[in-house]
Amino acid sequence: MASSSDYVTLVSNDGFSFVVQRSAACISPVIKRMLDPKGAFMEARDNTCTLQNINGMVLEKVCEYVYYHEKHKDARDVPDMDFPTELCLELLMASDYLNI
């Protein structure tokens, strides 16, 4: 398998997998380190990250954010992203973990 493809897979702890662009996913230093082709992690070989402490619903929002960030990187007036209120705290903890 190619050591670095353009897309990577993020897997939640309840088994949902999301395929996202590598450039977008790598805004998180944690994911970037996991997928570093030079690193010897298993994730780098498979291009798949399993995030043990993030569930599917939250990971979906994280993926949404990752593209939102990619889109608004240099924009001046960035509209805020909306989340369902019940996910706020879990998203906060996920973002703290992923450092994004």
């Binding site: 990187k73 924009a75 960035v78 706020c88």
Partner: peptide, 24 residues
């Protein structure tokens, strides 16, 4: 250095915290 370092977009942490602040 690194990708996304010079971004002006708010972080997910900030967005979630803001949402937490306004809703709870």
């Amino acid at each position: 250095s690194g990708s996304g370092s010079a971004s002006t977009a708010p972080s997910l942490f900030e967005l979630a915290l803001h949402s937490l602040q306004t809703n709870f």
